[in-house]
């Protein structure tokens, strides 16, 4: 590994992705420190998902560079994948497998030993209060639980960075709250959390946020800094102002 704790776990420099003549992501640059909770905001179609897909090695960049967990996403995508976790906006555990089977599968994929898988499974169901449902099919448990489970599975292997693409879509405020507690717990162990969200109140929970408009990052800073800079009372106000300016331009 080329970077250690305390260093930057994501370094993005001029990252660009074009689809034909359309530039979805336009020369974005930012750094994220190890253990930081980084909010990646933007309206639908602003290029968030395209940017994330480049960072997790699913999509090749057209220009610029990005290093995640110390590895270049363009040349060492497979090394990046070993060191990150990912939870997409679409729920992506296997619904026809049980809670235990899902945990075992991903544990195995990330190279955990049988003993480690066993231990992690117990810890995880205890923390999520899923003991009674451990042998239930995932499709039978409530959505909020599924999402907490999906997150826990995404960080099962203690990745350097975990990417969460709209993780709390469609769940109630209480579950969202619990979900963020999980995020904080994970960040406290040194895992970087890179999260996109539509909920602006969630943006306030982040250490730093960036706001993307039309493929570019137009604002970047702590929630407090951004509110001061734009003389807004909430990140929601900041976001609306920037997004509207972007659409008008």
């Amino acid at each position: 590994m080329t970077s250690a704790l305390g260093e930057r776990s994501i370094e993005v420099d001029g990252l660009t992705r074009r689809f034909g003549t359309f530039t979805a992501v336009d020369r974005i640059s930012f750094d994220v420190a190890q253990g930081e909770v980084f909010g990646f905001l933007g309206a639908n179609g602003a290029g968030k998902t395209t940017a994330i897909r480049m960072l997790i090695g699913l999509l090749a960049p057209s220009a610029g560079s990005a290093r995640v967990a110390g590895y270049d996403v363009a040349t060492h995508a497979e090394m990046v994948k070993r060191n990150i976790g990912y939870m997409s906006q679409r729920f992506s555990l296997y619904e026809d497998l049980t809670v235990r089977e899902n945990i075992t599968l991903y544990g195995g994929i990330y190279g955990l030993s049988d003993i480690a898988i066993e231990k992690r499974t117990t810890e995880l169901v205890d923390r999520l209060d899923l003991r009674d449902d451990i042998d239930a099919r995932v499709k039978s448990i409530p959505l909020g639980w599924k999402q907490k489970l999906a997150f826990s599975v995404a960080v099962l292997h203690d990745p350097r960075v975990v990417f969460l693409d709209e993780p709390t879509g469609g769940v109630d405020p209480i579950t969202r709250r619990q979900f963020w507690e999980l995020i904080y717990t994970t960040a406290a162990t040194g895992t970087t959390v890179f999260v996109t969200t539509h909920y602006m109140d969630e943006a306030e929970y982040c250490d730093r946020v960036s706001i993307m408009v039309d493929g570019r990052i137009v604002a970047l800073g702590t929630p407090a800094e951004l509110k001061e800079q734009y003389e807004a009372r909430s990140i929601d106000d900041v976001f609306v102002r920037l997004a509207r300016a972007g659409t008008a331009a």
């Binding site: 997790i56 090695g57 699913l58 497979e78 994948k81 070993r82 990150i84 990912y86 997409s88 679409r90 729920f91 992506s92 555990l93 296997y94 619904e95 991903y106 994929i109 990330y110 190279g111």
Partner: peptide, 14 residues
């Protein structure tokens, strides 16, 4: 369709 393929593609599964 379920998105699990994308999930697998983000793992070290070759």
């Amino acid at each position: 369709e379920l998105g699990t393929l994308e999930q697998l593609n983000v793992t070290p599964v070759t």
